[in-house]
Simulated scan of single mutants.
Amino acid sequence: LGPLDRSLPWSTDGIMGVYRFLQKAWRLLMAEGKEVRLKDLPDTEGTLAQRRLMARTIEQVTDDLEDLAFNTAISQLMVFVRDIEKTGPLPRKMARDFTLLLAPFAPHIAEEFWQHLGETESLAYAPWPEPEAEMLVEETIEIVVQVNGKLRDRITLPAEAGREEIEARALASERVQRHLGGKPPRKIIVVPQRLVNIVV
């Protein structure tokens, strides 16, 4: 529907998108028909991919709510619903956390999910979920490699890679070597966790 601080023409297209999202959320947490799926959710931690997605979702929705950026918070919830089942069955704790994140935007549906999760008190009294800090740390990063300011390659490295390792991997790239044409670099500029620019 757009940022809160912008004046935009009213359109029902955004409403249909939100309606479809809520239908997907319902199908994710509740079985079709009368049988309730929430009772059957596993009490596991979830896969690594699920835990990373949940941590990113909690962090972004929390930050967006503080900034009154409701449209991007809802967008992240949509991404969560779209991607979570691709990574394995939805664990009960993640269903619980998702329900709490959904509550500010769809309180009635969230309360229904909450009751079906077996909670007796209103979710309004539940503490806000906290992301797993270790799941927010990326294990690998993608770094852009430029030669004379032009994109020539992208390399994937461990997130903790030092300057020497970044330079060595950038110079070892076949695509970079082709553009160097056998000339030694005059200067190598490394912007940590973002890019390498090789000047010849």
Rank of each mutant, 00 (worst) to 15 (best):
M30K: 14
Q76T: 06
G181V: 04
Q177Y: 05
A126H: 08
D67K: 14
N148A: 00
P131Q: 02
Q50E: 10
L151C: 11
Y125R: 09
I58N: 00
E132L: 14
D63Q: 05
V200G: 00
L117T: 12
K93A: 09
M78G: 07
N197L: 06
H179G: 02
L4A: 15
E59I: 00
T12Y: 09
V144C: 13
W114H: 10
L117M: 13
L29P: 05
M135L: 06
N148T: 00
E142F: 10
L48N: 02
G17T: 01
E164D: 12
A172D: 12
L68C: 11
M30N: 10
G2C: 08
A172L: 03
E112V: 06
E139G: 01
I58V: 08
S122R: 14
M94F: 10
L171Q: 03
F80K: 00
R37Y: 13
D153T: 08
A126S: 12
V190K: 05
P127G: 05
T140F: 05
I141H: 00
T12G: 07
T57R: 06
K93G: 02
E59V: 01
I74Y: 00
L151T: 14
V199W: 01
W114P: 07
G33I: 12
L151K: 15
P9G: 04
Q50I: 13
P192T: 13
P42N: 11
I74H: 00
E164G: 05
Y19M: 14
P129M: 07
R194P: 07
T47I: 13
R186S: 08
P184S: 05
E160M: 09
V61G: 02
Q193S: 08
V176G: 04
P89C: 11
E164I: 12
D67Y: 02
A133C: 13
L100G: 11
L151N: 12
E119N: 12
F80P: 01
Q76K: 10
V61S: 02
A69T: 04
T44L: 15
I143C: 01
S75P: 07
L171A: 01
W26C: 09
L4S: 15
N71G: 05
H108L: 11
D64P: 01
E160L: 09
